[in-house]
Simulated assay, not measured.
Amino acid sequence: MTRILVVDDATTVRMYYRDVLEEAGFAVEEAVNGFEGLEKAVAESFDLILVDVNMPKMDGYAFLRQGRTMPELQAVPAVMISTESAAQDRDRAYAAGANLYLVKPVRPEVLTEVAAVMAGVAP
């Protein structure tokens, strides 16, 4: 089963992603900040990581920058999803190691299609 790690400090956002993705057949784990996300991502194996930008303790940019230095996470696709919509935010995400940048809110059909494509499974 395709495994996705959702790293976001907002409980409602994590629940939304979990509901949508599990209904589409994905297995979903959650982390509330970048530190917890890195711990889980290194300890377990994931096919895709969805990460927020603005989080306490470690933001999404730092999570991606640090994760991309770890051999276990270098090849795992990462999608940054944020309310920040300026071109500079998107550029920062790609520079930090994101494979794709989406602006919240993300419609369910977009979320499932992006997850399938990025994780390498047929949508």
Rank of each mutant, 00 (worst) to 15 (best):
D91T: 14
V114K: 10
V79S: 06
M70P: 02
L50V: 02
E36W: 08
A98K: 13
V103D: 03
I49G: 02
P108R: 00
Q74C: 06
T69R: 15
R3V: 00
V42E: 13
A95P: 01
Y17V: 03
A115S: 13
A43K: 15
S45N: 13
L111P: 03
Y61V: 02
G25M: 08
E39L: 08
A115G: 06
A24T: 06
E36H: 13
Y61L: 12
M15P: 00
D52Y: 10
D91A: 15
A98E: 09
L48D: 08
L38I: 04
S85D: 15
S45Q: 14
R14I: 02
V79G: 05
V53Y: 12
R65A: 07
A115F: 02
V121P: 00
L38T: 04
T83F: 07
L102E: 05
V117N: 01
A93Y: 15
A87N: 09
E22W: 10
A115M: 09
P77K: 02
R92L: 07
S45T: 13
T11V: 06
R68C: 06
L21G: 02
F63Y: 13
A31D: 06
P105V: 07
V121F: 02
E30M: 06
V20E: 00
N54M: 12
G67D: 10
I81G: 00
L48Q: 12
Y101M: 06
G37C: 09
M118Q: 15
V51N: 08
Q88S: 13
S85G: 10
Y16A: 08
I4P: 00
V117K: 02
N33W: 11
A86Y: 11
A31M: 05
E109W: 14
T11M: 11
S45L: 05
V114G: 01
M80P: 04
G34V: 04
F26D: 00
L5N: 05
A116Y: 00
L100P: 03
M118H: 13
A31S: 08
L102G: 01
A87H: 14
A87S: 14
G120I: 01
D47A: 10
E109A: 07
I4M: 10
F26T: 00
S85F: 10
P105D: 11
Y61M: 03
P108S: 10
L100S: 03
F35I: 11
V114C: 03
Y17F: 14
K57M: 04
M58E: 12
E84V: 03
A43W: 04
A93G: 13
A41W: 08
R14P: 02
K104Q: 10
A78P: 05
N99L: 02
V28T: 05
V20W: 01
R3A: 07
A93I: 08
P77S: 07
P77T: 01
S82E: 07
A98M: 10
G97E: 08
G34K: 09
V106S: 11
P56L: 05
